[in-house]
Design a protein around this nucleic acid. Structure first.
Lengths: 189, 189
DNA sequence: ACGGTGATGAGACTTGGTCCCATCACCGTA
DNA sequence: TACGGTGATGGGACCAAGTCTCATCACCGT
């Protein structure tokens, strides 16, 4: 038996997402989130550094991407390494059972500038990690930047497609396909 | 004679930049910024919606980019239109007399996560504007996204090079050259 | 001289976020 | 059984960002 109700963080995330959906991010106070989770403001800030982060906490994403790029076959080019990373993400993070949660979360984020701002920053960090991982494979700096940007773009588009509930394809498969389209488009610039 | 000291906004920007450099963004209070500018907290928030925005206020950048892309020669491809926009920016915004201010501003932003976050959001908005402007030229959506991302990357790199005070080249020229390098790199992915 | 106008000042108020200290249930040890 | 350590929580003081409302005050046209 635990001393307190378990999964405090998860309860906070759930409470927050519900409240954001019900009355919007700005009309929800941290105290209200904590109360719905059966906790207090103090405990909230012990689990998350700020109010926005409650929707960005699960982020082991960076590690997965870096690992995915590093683990790509030795002969693979930059974009192939990125595709490999997107595969890893699809298998480890974007599983079908998390799709609904992801879509709800994304809707809340899109509806609020403050949350979009945090998302943008996370995106920069992710892209920077991809660049580093590619450089570690021996890819020249500029090429690494370009590959990372194209990969991030494909990721974003693939995620939108994958979130569509009428589409049951695996994320990795969608991402590979999208990345190929992006690469083809880049040749037409 | 004016009733009050003129250029209140500009004075606030200057005071803020100085204080951020002296003691850091987080250790500077809005009240302190206002006082150095000879104003009050109330007036600060009348000129800027929040503390971060004091470093992002001059942003007619979006309009310039959109205008630059729209004004590109009819036969120009997506990346050529973007290059044209970068030329416009170089002539209208990134003039030599603003280079030092830009560099100081950039250093402050880079040093603070909260400011980087705002910068990231502005970047997203700018990229989205480029995509729209390219679509209005008849560029297919996906191609427009790719061209905008590559353009944004070239922009960022070119800005870093241009900020280097040992380099007196025009921004537009640097940007064109950088964009060509980015395009070449994208072919190696 | 007088009322309108627009930028500013003053201060109350809410909320995000920090910090410190108390509490309280469990656990290992004597 | 008693006891002290531990780790997550609660409580509340405190500061700064941001909102809002009302007062002020110098200019301007009539």
């Amino acid at each position: 038996m635990a001393r307190w109700q378990p999964n405090a963080s998860q309860r906070l995330v759930t409470a927050a997402l519900e409240l954001f959906e019900e009355r919007g991010y700005e009309n929800t106070t941290v105290i209200e989130i904590a109360e719905r989770a059966g906790l207090t403001k103090s405990t909230f800030f012990r689990h998350f550094p700020d109010k926005r982060e409650v929707l960005f906490g699960g982020g082991t994403m960076t590690g997965l991407v870096v690992q995915g790029i590093a683990a790509a076959p030795a002969g693979a080019g930059p974009l192939e390494a990125v595709a490999h990373a997107l595969d890893v993400i699809g298998k480890e993070a974007f599983t079908l059972d998390r799709r609904e949660f992801g879509a709800r979360r994304q809707a809340v984020i899109t509806a609020n500038p403050e949350l979009r701002e945090r998302e943008a920053l996370k995106g920069l960090g992710l892209t920077a990690s991809m660049v580093d991982a590619l450089k570690r494979r021996g890819v020249p700096a500029l090429t690494a930047h370009v590959a990372a940007e194209l990969g991030a773009l494909a990721w974003k588009i693939a995620y939108e497609r994958w979130s569509d509930t009428t589409n049951d394809e695996e994320f990795g498969e969608l991402a590979r396909q999208t990345l190929a389209e992006v690469q083809a488009a880049s040749a037409l610039c």
